[in-house]
Design a protein around this nucleic acid. Structure first.
Lengths: 174, 174
DNA sequence: GCATATTGGTTGCATTTGCAACGAGGGGGG
DNA sequence: CCCCCCTCGTTGCAAATGCAACCAATATGC
Protein backbone atom coordinates (compact mmCIF):
# COMPACT_ATOMS: atom_id res chain seq x y z
CA UNK A 1 0.00 0.00 0.00
CA UNK A 2 2.61 2.51 1.01
CA UNK A 3 5.16 3.66 -1.54
CA UNK A 4 7.87 1.80 0.26
CA UNK A 5 6.07 -1.43 -0.42
CA UNK A 6 5.88 -0.73 -4.07
CA UNK A 7 9.52 0.06 -4.23
CA UNK A 8 10.24 -3.14 -2.41
CA UNK A 9 8.17 -5.12 -4.85
CA UNK A 10 9.94 -3.60 -7.79
CA UNK A 11 13.31 -4.20 -6.27
CA UNK A 12 12.63 -7.80 -5.47
CA UNK A 13 11.78 -8.44 -9.05
CA UNK A 14 15.43 -8.37 -9.99
CA UNK A 15 17.35 -7.99 -6.79
CA UNK A 16 15.89 -10.70 -4.62
CA UNK A 17 17.74 -13.40 -6.46
CA UNK A 18 20.90 -11.43 -6.24
CA UNK A 19 20.79 -10.97 -2.51
CA UNK A 20 22.36 -13.53 -0.28
CA UNK A 21 21.85 -13.97 3.40
CA UNK A 22 24.81 -14.19 5.73
CA UNK A 23 24.44 -17.92 6.03
CA UNK A 24 24.24 -18.36 2.30
CA UNK A 25 27.34 -16.32 1.68
CA UNK A 26 29.26 -18.08 4.38
CA UNK A 27 28.09 -21.51 3.27
CA UNK A 28 29.17 -20.85 -0.28
CA UNK A 29 32.57 -19.48 0.57
CA UNK A 30 33.17 -22.20 3.14
CA UNK A 31 32.35 -24.81 0.56
CA UNK A 32 34.72 -23.39 -2.00
CA UNK A 33 37.46 -22.71 0.45
CA UNK A 34 37.23 -25.98 2.32
CA UNK A 35 37.36 -27.87 -0.93
CA UNK A 36 40.26 -25.85 -2.22
CA UNK A 37 42.15 -26.18 1.01
CA UNK A 38 41.67 -29.92 1.22
CA UNK A 39 42.63 -30.59 -2.37
CA UNK A 40 45.63 -28.36 -1.98
CA UNK A 41 46.71 -30.24 1.11
CA UNK A 42 46.45 -33.55 -0.65
CA UNK A 43 48.38 -32.33 -3.65
CA UNK A 44 51.09 -30.93 -1.44
CA UNK A 45 51.33 -34.13 0.56
CA UNK A 46 51.62 -36.17 -2.61
CA UNK A 47 54.26 -33.90 -4.05
CA UNK A 48 56.23 -34.09 -0.86
CA UNK A 49 56.55 -37.81 -1.38
CA UNK A 50 57.31 -37.43 -5.07
CA UNK A 51 54.00 -38.91 -6.05
CA UNK A 52 51.88 -37.86 -9.02
CA UNK A 53 48.87 -35.55 -8.66
CA UNK A 54 45.45 -36.50 -7.42
CA UNK A 55 43.95 -36.80 -10.89
CA UNK A 56 46.23 -39.71 -11.57
CA UNK A 57 45.00 -41.37 -8.45
CA UNK A 58 41.38 -40.98 -9.46
CA UNK A 59 41.99 -42.52 -12.84
CA UNK A 60 44.07 -45.35 -11.48
CA UNK A 61 41.45 -46.08 -8.88
CA UNK A 62 38.66 -46.25 -11.44
CA UNK A 63 40.76 -48.55 -13.57
CA UNK A 64 41.55 -50.66 -10.54
CA UNK A 65 37.87 -51.05 -9.74
CA UNK A 66 37.15 -51.90 -13.36
CA UNK A 67 39.62 -54.73 -13.38
CA UNK A 68 40.09 -56.92 -15.21
CA UNK A 69 37.81 -55.87 -18.02
CA UNK A 70 38.98 -52.25 -18.10
CA UNK A 71 37.01 -49.14 -18.85
CA UNK A 72 36.08 -47.21 -21.97
CA UNK A 73 37.74 -43.84 -22.06
CA UNK A 74 34.34 -42.28 -22.25
CA UNK A 75 33.14 -43.95 -19.06
CA UNK A 76 36.41 -43.17 -17.40
CA UNK A 77 35.79 -39.55 -18.17
CA UNK A 78 32.29 -39.48 -16.78
CA UNK A 79 33.38 -41.24 -13.61
CA UNK A 80 36.24 -38.88 -12.94
CA UNK A 81 34.47 -35.77 -14.23
CA UNK A 82 37.23 -35.19 -16.74
CA UNK A 83 36.64 -33.83 -20.20
CA UNK A 84 37.37 -36.28 -22.91
CA UNK A 85 40.37 -34.49 -24.34
CA UNK A 86 41.78 -34.54 -20.88
CA UNK A 87 41.16 -38.25 -20.52
CA UNK A 88 42.96 -38.93 -23.77
CA UNK A 89 46.02 -37.07 -22.66
CA UNK A 90 46.03 -38.39 -19.12
CA UNK A 91 45.82 -41.97 -20.31
CA UNK A 92 48.58 -41.27 -22.78
CA UNK A 93 50.75 -40.04 -19.99
CA UNK A 94 49.93 -43.02 -17.80
CA UNK A 95 50.73 -45.29 -20.71
CA UNK A 96 54.05 -43.57 -21.19
CA UNK A 97 54.86 -44.32 -17.57
CA UNK A 98 53.77 -47.92 -17.90
CA UNK A 99 50.91 -47.46 -15.45
CA UNK A 100 48.10 -48.20 -17.87
CA UNK A 101 47.60 -49.42 -21.38
CA UNK A 102 45.10 -49.08 -24.17
CA UNK A 103 43.18 -51.82 -25.90
CA UNK A 104 40.70 -51.82 -28.73
CA UNK A 105 37.11 -52.26 -27.72
CA UNK A 106 35.74 -55.59 -29.00
CA UNK A 107 32.18 -54.60 -29.77
CA UNK A 108 32.80 -51.08 -30.97
CA UNK A 109 35.62 -50.26 -33.31
CA UNK A 110 35.83 -46.64 -32.32
CA UNK A 111 36.00 -47.38 -28.59
CA UNK A 112 39.22 -47.61 -26.60
CA UNK A 113 39.53 -49.51 -23.36
CA UNK A 114 42.01 -48.46 -20.71
CA UNK A 115 43.53 -51.04 -18.42
CA UNK A 116 45.65 -50.64 -15.34
CA UNK A 117 48.97 -52.43 -15.23
CA UNK A 118 50.54 -54.09 -12.19
CA UNK A 119 52.88 -51.15 -11.96
CA UNK A 120 49.87 -48.86 -11.97
CA UNK A 121 48.29 -50.85 -9.18
CA UNK A 122 51.42 -50.61 -7.12
CA UNK A 123 51.64 -46.88 -7.59
CA UNK A 124 48.03 -46.42 -6.59
CA UNK A 125 48.63 -48.43 -3.45
CA UNK A 126 51.53 -46.20 -2.57
CA UNK A 127 49.47 -43.10 -3.12
CA UNK A 128 46.51 -44.17 -1.08
CA UNK A 129 47.96 -43.83 2.45
CA UNK A 130 49.16 -40.32 1.71
CA UNK A 131 45.85 -39.30 0.23
CA UNK A 132 43.80 -41.03 2.85
CA UNK A 133 45.76 -39.75 5.81
CA UNK A 134 45.65 -36.16 4.64
CA UNK A 135 41.91 -36.20 4.17
CA UNK A 136 41.45 -37.81 7.55
CA UNK A 137 43.62 -35.30 9.33
CA UNK A 138 42.25 -32.24 7.63
CA UNK A 139 38.66 -33.24 7.18
CA UNK A 140 37.24 -36.28 8.95
CA UNK A 141 39.07 -35.73 12.22
CA UNK A 142 37.51 -32.32 12.59
CA UNK A 143 33.96 -33.64 12.55
CA UNK A 144 32.06 -36.28 14.46
CA UNK A 145 30.68 -39.29 12.66
CA UNK A 146 27.22 -37.82 12.90
CA UNK A 147 28.36 -34.57 11.41
CA UNK A 148 30.04 -36.37 8.57
CA UNK A 149 26.82 -38.21 7.89
CA UNK A 150 24.82 -35.03 7.76
CA UNK A 151 27.39 -33.34 5.59
CA UNK A 152 27.07 -36.26 3.24
CA UNK A 153 23.32 -35.87 3.21
CA UNK A 154 23.36 -32.15 2.60
CA UNK A 155 25.95 -32.20 -0.14
CA UNK A 156 24.34 -35.19 -1.72
CA UNK A 157 21.15 -33.21 -1.99
CA UNK A 158 22.95 -30.55 -3.95
CA UNK A 159 24.21 -33.13 -6.38
CA UNK A 160 21.26 -35.40 -6.82
CA UNK A 161 18.74 -32.76 -7.66
CA UNK A 162 17.54 -33.10 -11.21
CA UNK A 163 19.75 -30.79 -13.17
CA UNK A 164 18.11 -29.29 -16.21
CA UNK A 165 20.87 -29.09 -18.75
CA UNK A 166 20.88 -25.98 -20.88
CA UNK A 167 19.07 -26.61 -24.11
CA UNK A 168 17.94 -30.16 -23.74
CA UNK A 169 17.12 -31.81 -20.47
CA UNK A 170 17.62 -35.52 -20.61
CA UNK A 171 14.78 -37.40 -18.97
CA UNK A 172 17.01 -38.91 -16.30
CA UNK A 173 20.39 -40.46 -16.74
CA UNK A 174 20.14 -42.56 -13.59
CA UNK B 1 42.04 -62.80 23.29
CA UNK B 2 41.23 -64.62 20.12
CA UNK B 3 43.70 -64.50 17.27
CA UNK B 4 41.31 -62.44 15.24
CA UNK B 5 41.62 -59.70 17.80
CA UNK B 6 45.36 -59.67 17.57
CA UNK B 7 45.25 -59.54 13.84
CA UNK B 8 42.83 -56.68 14.07
CA UNK B 9 45.11 -54.82 16.42
CA UNK B 10 48.06 -55.26 14.15
CA UNK B 11 46.08 -54.24 11.14
CA UNK B 12 44.77 -51.12 12.73
CA UNK B 13 48.28 -49.97 13.37
CA UNK B 14 48.69 -48.98 9.77
CA UNK B 15 45.39 -49.62 8.09
CA UNK B 16 42.95 -47.90 10.37
CA UNK B 17 43.89 -44.50 9.09
CA UNK B 18 43.56 -45.75 5.57
CA UNK B 19 40.10 -47.12 5.97
CA UNK B 20 37.14 -44.93 5.36
CA UNK B 21 33.59 -45.55 6.40
CA UNK B 22 30.81 -45.30 3.89
CA UNK B 23 29.77 -41.93 5.22
CA UNK B 24 33.29 -40.61 5.08
CA UNK B 25 33.80 -41.70 1.52
CA UNK B 26 30.48 -40.30 0.43
CA UNK B 27 31.01 -37.05 2.31
CA UNK B 28 34.39 -36.54 0.69
CA UNK B 29 33.29 -37.31 -2.83
CA UNK B 30 30.14 -35.25 -2.42
CA UNK B 31 32.18 -32.33 -1.27
CA UNK B 32 34.54 -32.51 -4.20
CA UNK B 33 31.85 -33.16 -6.73
CA UNK B 34 29.40 -30.59 -5.45
CA UNK B 35 32.08 -27.98 -5.47
CA UNK B 36 33.28 -28.91 -8.92
CA UNK B 37 29.78 -29.01 -10.30
CA UNK B 38 28.85 -25.64 -8.86
CA UNK B 39 31.98 -23.90 -10.04
CA UNK B 40 31.57 -25.45 -13.42
CA UNK B 41 28.00 -24.23 -13.64
CA UNK B 42 29.01 -20.72 -12.77
CA UNK B 43 31.82 -20.70 -15.29
CA UNK B 44 29.52 -21.99 -17.98
CA UNK B 45 26.87 -19.43 -17.18
CA UNK B 46 29.42 -16.64 -17.31
CA UNK B 47 30.84 -17.85 -20.58
CA UNK B 48 27.39 -18.05 -22.07
CA UNK B 49 27.03 -14.34 -21.50
CA UNK B 50 30.53 -13.60 -22.77
CA UNK B 51 31.71 -12.67 -19.34
CA UNK B 52 35.16 -13.38 -17.91
CA UNK B 53 35.85 -16.28 -15.56
CA UNK B 54 35.06 -16.43 -11.88
CA UNK B 55 38.60 -15.58 -10.78
CA UNK B 56 38.21 -12.20 -12.34
CA UNK B 57 35.07 -11.66 -10.35
CA UNK B 58 36.76 -12.55 -7.10
CA UNK B 59 39.56 -10.12 -7.72
CA UNK B 60 37.28 -7.34 -8.87
CA UNK B 61 35.10 -7.85 -5.85
CA UNK B 62 38.01 -7.63 -3.44
CA UNK B 63 39.18 -4.48 -5.16
CA UNK B 64 35.69 -3.10 -5.03
CA UNK B 65 35.51 -3.68 -1.30
CA UNK B 66 38.92 -2.13 -0.85
CA UNK B 67 37.89 1.06 -2.54
CA UNK B 68 39.11 3.70 -2.69
CA UNK B 69 42.44 2.93 -1.12
CA UNK B 70 43.09 -0.23 -3.12
CA UNK B 71 44.82 -3.38 -2.07
CA UNK B 72 48.39 -4.62 -2.02
CA UNK B 73 48.88 -7.46 -4.46
CA UNK B 74 50.00 -9.59 -1.59
CA UNK B 75 46.82 -9.04 0.36
CA UNK B 76 44.79 -9.51 -2.76
CA UNK B 77 46.42 -12.88 -3.14
CA UNK B 78 45.72 -14.02 0.38
CA UNK B 79 42.10 -12.92 0.16
CA UNK B 80 41.46 -14.71 -3.10
CA UNK B 81 43.67 -17.70 -2.31
CA UNK B 82 45.71 -17.06 -5.42
CA UNK B 83 49.44 -17.61 -5.63
CA UNK B 84 51.40 -14.47 -6.05
CA UNK B 85 52.61 -15.15 -9.55
CA UNK B 86 49.03 -15.69 -10.47
CA UNK B 87 48.00 -12.39 -8.92
CA UNK B 88 50.66 -10.58 -10.87
CA UNK B 89 49.43 -11.97 -14.14
CA UNK B 90 45.77 -11.61 -13.39
CA UNK B 91 46.17 -7.96 -12.48
CA UNK B 92 48.19 -7.46 -15.63
CA UNK B 93 45.34 -8.88 -17.64
CA UNK B 94 42.80 -6.74 -15.85
CA UNK B 95 44.98 -3.72 -16.43
CA UNK B 96 45.20 -4.53 -20.10
CA UNK B 97 41.42 -4.55 -20.26
CA UNK B 98 41.19 -1.30 -18.37
CA UNK B 99 39.43 -2.93 -15.43
CA UNK B 100 42.11 -2.21 -12.85
CA UNK B 101 45.30 -0.27 -12.51
CA UNK B 102 48.49 -0.42 -10.56
CA UNK B 103 49.90 2.20 -8.24
CA UNK B 104 53.08 2.39 -6.24
CA UNK B 105 52.65 1.79 -2.57
CA UNK B 106 53.42 5.02 -0.65
CA UNK B 107 55.05 3.55 2.44
CA UNK B 108 56.83 0.62 0.81
CA UNK B 109 58.70 0.97 -2.43
CA UNK B 110 58.47 -2.71 -3.30
CA UNK B 111 54.71 -2.84 -2.79
CA UNK B 112 52.17 -2.43 -5.56
CA UNK B 113 48.62 -1.38 -4.98
CA UNK B 114 45.86 -2.51 -7.29
CA UNK B 115 42.83 -0.33 -7.85
CA UNK B 116 39.58 -1.05 -9.58
CA UNK B 117 38.52 1.32 -12.33
CA UNK B 118 34.95 2.47 -13.05
CA UNK B 119 34.95 0.11 -15.99
CA UNK B 120 35.98 -2.69 -13.67
CA UNK B 121 33.15 -1.83 -11.31
CA UNK B 122 30.66 -1.92 -14.12
CA UNK B 123 31.88 -5.27 -15.29
CA UNK B 124 31.65 -6.72 -11.82
CA UNK B 125 28.12 -5.48 -11.51
CA UNK B 126 27.23 -7.18 -14.73
CA UNK B 127 28.78 -10.43 -13.60
CA UNK B 128 27.11 -10.55 -10.24
CA UNK B 129 23.57 -11.47 -11.29
CA UNK B 130 24.82 -14.33 -13.41
CA UNK B 131 27.05 -15.64 -10.67
CA UNK B 132 24.50 -15.10 -7.98
CA UNK B 133 21.62 -16.65 -9.81
CA UNK B 134 23.52 -19.76 -10.75
CA UNK B 135 24.61 -20.41 -7.19
CA UNK B 136 21.09 -19.85 -5.95
CA UNK B 137 19.56 -22.19 -8.46
CA UNK B 138 22.10 -24.95 -8.11
CA UNK B 139 22.92 -24.67 -4.47
CA UNK B 140 20.80 -22.57 -2.13
CA UNK B 141 17.50 -23.50 -3.65
CA UNK B 142 18.12 -27.17 -2.96
CA UNK B 143 18.46 -26.69 0.77
CA UNK B 144 16.40 -25.09 3.48
CA UNK B 145 17.71 -22.09 5.37
CA UNK B 146 18.39 -24.29 8.35
CA UNK B 147 20.34 -26.73 6.26
CA UNK B 148 22.39 -23.95 4.77
CA UNK B 149 23.19 -22.75 8.25
CA UNK B 150 24.35 -26.15 9.36
CA UNK B 151 26.36 -26.63 6.21
CA UNK B 152 28.03 -23.37 6.99
CA UNK B 153 28.80 -24.51 10.49
CA UNK B 154 30.19 -27.87 9.46
CA UNK B 155 32.37 -26.56 6.66
CA UNK B 156 33.50 -23.67 8.78
CA UNK B 157 34.73 -26.18 11.31
CA UNK B 158 36.87 -27.83 8.68
CA UNK B 159 38.47 -24.52 7.85
CA UNK B 160 38.92 -22.90 11.19
CA UNK B 161 40.60 -25.77 12.92
CA UNK B 162 44.12 -24.96 14.00
CA UNK B 163 46.91 -26.68 12.16
CA UNK B 164 47.38 -29.98 14.01
CA UNK B 165 50.77 -31.58 14.29
CA UNK B 166 51.02 -34.64 12.06
CA UNK B 167 51.18 -37.88 13.97
CA UNK B 168 48.92 -36.63 16.70
CA UNK B 169 45.28 -37.18 16.06
CA UNK B 170 43.18 -35.07 18.34
CA UNK B 171 40.41 -37.12 19.86
CA UNK B 172 37.93 -34.35 19.43
CA UNK B 173 38.73 -31.00 17.96
CA UNK B 174 35.28 -29.66 18.69
C1' DG C 1 21.09 -48.71 -49.27
C1' DC C 2 22.69 -44.25 -48.98
C1' DA C 3 22.99 -39.63 -47.09
C1' DT C 4 23.15 -37.53 -42.71
C1' DA C 5 23.70 -36.93 -37.98
C1' DT C 6 25.94 -38.55 -33.68
C1' DT C 7 29.38 -40.68 -30.86
C1' DG C 8 34.23 -41.78 -29.39
C1' DG C 9 38.57 -40.37 -29.39
C1' DT C 10 42.53 -37.47 -30.91
C1' DT C 11 45.15 -33.28 -31.95
C1' DG C 12 46.73 -28.19 -32.83
C1' DC C 13 46.53 -23.92 -30.89
C1' DA C 14 45.87 -20.46 -27.42
C1' DT C 15 45.36 -19.58 -22.62
C1' DT C 16 46.30 -20.61 -17.86
C1' DT C 17 48.82 -22.60 -14.19
C1' DG C 18 52.93 -24.27 -11.44
C1' DC C 19 57.71 -23.89 -10.31
C1' DA C 20 61.85 -21.94 -9.57
C1' DA C 21 64.92 -18.25 -10.06
C1' DC C 22 65.55 -13.47 -10.06
C1' DG C 23 65.97 -8.29 -8.83
C1' DA C 24 64.72 -4.61 -5.95
C1' DG C 25 63.67 -2.90 -1.50
C1' DG C 26 63.36 -3.16 3.65
C1' DG C 27 64.73 -4.47 8.46
C1' DG C 28 67.95 -5.78 12.02
C1' DG C 29 72.50 -6.80 14.11
C1' DG C 30 77.24 -5.83 14.05
C1' DC D 1 77.16 2.11 7.49
C1' DC D 2 77.40 -2.67 5.84
C1' DC D 3 76.01 -7.27 5.51
C1' DC D 4 72.71 -10.77 5.69
C1' DC D 5 68.19 -12.29 5.29
C1' DC D 6 63.55 -11.64 4.43
C1' DT D 7 59.48 -9.93 1.80
C1' DC D 8 57.24 -8.25 -2.54
C1' DG D 9 56.49 -8.68 -7.02
C1' DT D 10 57.98 -10.26 -11.63
C1' DT D 11 59.39 -13.40 -15.31
C1' DG D 12 61.01 -17.68 -18.24
C1' DC D 13 60.03 -22.08 -18.94
C1' DA D 14 57.49 -26.36 -18.58
C1' DA D 15 53.23 -28.64 -17.81
C1' DA D 16 48.27 -28.70 -17.75
C1' DT D 17 43.81 -27.08 -19.38
C1' DG D 18 40.13 -25.32 -22.55
C1' DC D 19 38.40 -24.89 -27.18
C1' DA D 20 37.39 -26.17 -31.59
C1' DA D 21 38.26 -28.73 -35.52
C1' DC D 22 39.02 -33.20 -37.03
C1' DC D 23 38.75 -38.46 -38.47
C1' DA D 24 36.77 -42.83 -38.05
C1' DA D 25 32.94 -45.67 -36.82
C1' DT D 26 28.24 -46.17 -35.71
C1' DA D 27 23.38 -45.06 -35.49
C1' DT D 28 19.34 -42.85 -37.76
C1' DG D 29 16.09 -41.27 -41.35
C1' DC D 30 14.28 -41.77 -45.82
Amino acid sequence: MQPICIIFRIMTKSAKIAQWTDDETAAWTSLVRANQHLLQSVETALKEKDLPPLTWYDVLWELEKARPRGLRLNDLGSRTLLDKYNVTRLVTRLEKEGLARRMNCPGDARGIIALITPKGSRLRKRMWPVYSRTVREEFFSRLSQGEIASLRKLLGRVLNAPNPAPGRKSAKSV
